[in-house]
Design a protein around this nucleic acid. Structure first.
Ligand SMILES: [Mn+2]
Ligand SMILES: [Mn+2]
Ligand SMILES: [Mn+2]
Ligand SMILES: [Mn+2]
Lengths: 233, 233
DNA sequence: GCTAAGATTTCGGTGTGCCGAAAACTGGTC
DNA sequence: GACCAGTTTTCGGCACACCGAAATCTTAGC
């Protein structure tokens, strides 16, 4: 029986939930991510379990089986390759690729996908820094910490930005933050002030927000802090 | 209400039936082309009519309204642009593109389609010689006659080959017949013999099958005669 | 332990597109 | 004008994926 695109989406969301954080997904979160009613999700999860793609603790979390993980990685590979391809070949901006990829990932044949992979030179990450699983299902997560958790004064390079919100992506690009941007964490301004970062690597001359902040420093909002991952430059 | 891909397929088949031949399609033929039961088609045609895409003479033919024709041309543009793109960009052979296009035509966004159109230099025909409707719905049918109806001794250039049967396409390519191939109609060999053509333009030295056939002449089967269109070279 | 808020599941129901069988219709033949 | 073969339509039913409302379960707070 052919895997329908609905199943592909469920499995992809279930997998993605644990990609940057360890807690398995619950039915209500799954429903929210898919834009469906909780009752619909319960039913579908039952079918996933019946197909051997997921296991489900009743009244609890949903996890993927090895088979489900395999399918999820295939879909992630498709999604991310397509996003990369749209940017490289068709001048899409990084905030414009997600929706198109969301549709195309279910439609391209393996053959076409392989041809695209080759055309792109077998890329290892997508426009948002997410790793592209290899054809054999291998995936290498970039090391990095969430900007929110970065220590004050540290310097790092942006290795991943969540592509969930296109508006945030456009904003960050306008501010000069994209993949591989070096930045220095100034820290949180006192008395409930914003979280400041400085573009470029300034290891050594970085100072705390209390003393060394300059007007040129960027004040990032909470959403950005939860969306940007950095690694030692 | 978004047009579903099922509707798009119905409308495309209805239109295509009158593209090279004037009789409107009947429910049974429509069912055969779509691989569905006649009863399913009756129901769906009713819905097409309700949506203003088709008109249906009860117990009779199905025809498209202006609106239905517009949708059909949009879909044909998609299908044929995609076929062309697969051949030009991804080294598909002309007998391999149809199935992939059949899926992708429902999935690509208008934006991506336009980008592809531009990348290809706004092609006017697909790998099988079918005209690609312009964005405004304009379509220019190539002039040409079915090879079956070509007069003996005439010379012509292949302007269109039906892409319905991949095996025929491969066969013809192996025999040296593709788009723009010049050929001379020798004619039907006597006593129920095959239909002979000679590669290249040999206006003047063409002779009837009875007298001038040579071993090198190609003997085309009935299916080919019904699938190849030629025009004066 | 009890309770209640919140999450999850169950249940009845919907829309879409499909099917086979049976009924209704058509067009040609005599 | 009656008949018949083939076509088309009607009809009851199914699979899929979804929904809201009601019932059930979990768990955190007391
Ligand atoms: Mn994405
Ligand atoms: Mn991405
Ligand atoms: Mn085709
Ligand atoms: Mn074609």
């Amino acid at each position: 029986m052919k895997t329908q695109s609905v199943v592909e989406d469920y499995v992809k969301v279930i997998y993605s939930h644990t990609e940057w954080q360890p807690e398995p997904i619950t039915p209500s979160v799954l429903a929210a991510r898919l834009g469906l009613a909780a009752s619909s999700v319960t039913e579908m999860v039952k079918k996933l379990a019946a197909q051997g793609l997921a296991t489900h603790v009743k009244y609890g979390a949903v996890t993927l089986t090895a088979q489900g993980t395999e399918l999820a990685l295939r879909m992630l590979r498709r999604h991310r390759l397509i996003e990369t391809w749209l940017v490289e070949q068709y001048a899409y901006r990084w905030d414009e690729v997600h929706d198109e990829a969301e549709v195309l990932e279910h439609a391209l044949s393996d053959r076409l996908l392989d041809a695209i992979d080759e055309q792109l030179g077998f890329p290892s990450r997508d426009p948002h820094g997410d790793p592209i699983p290899a054809r054999d299902g291998t995936i290498t997560r970039p090391v990095g910490v969430l900007l929110r958790d970065a220590s004050e004064g540290s310097t790092g390079r942006v290795v991943r930005i969540s592509d969930r919100d296109p508006l945030l992506l456009r904003h960050l690009e306008a501010e000069g933050i994209t993949l591989d941007t070096d930045l220095t964490v100034i820290g949180r301004a006192p008395f409930g002030g914003g979280f400041l970062v400085r573009l470029g690597a300034h290891a050594g001359d970085a100072t705390s927000a209390a003393t060394g902040a300059t007007p040129a420093d960027l004040d990032l909002g909470d959403q950005a802090l939860e969306s940007i991952w950095i690694a030692a430059a």
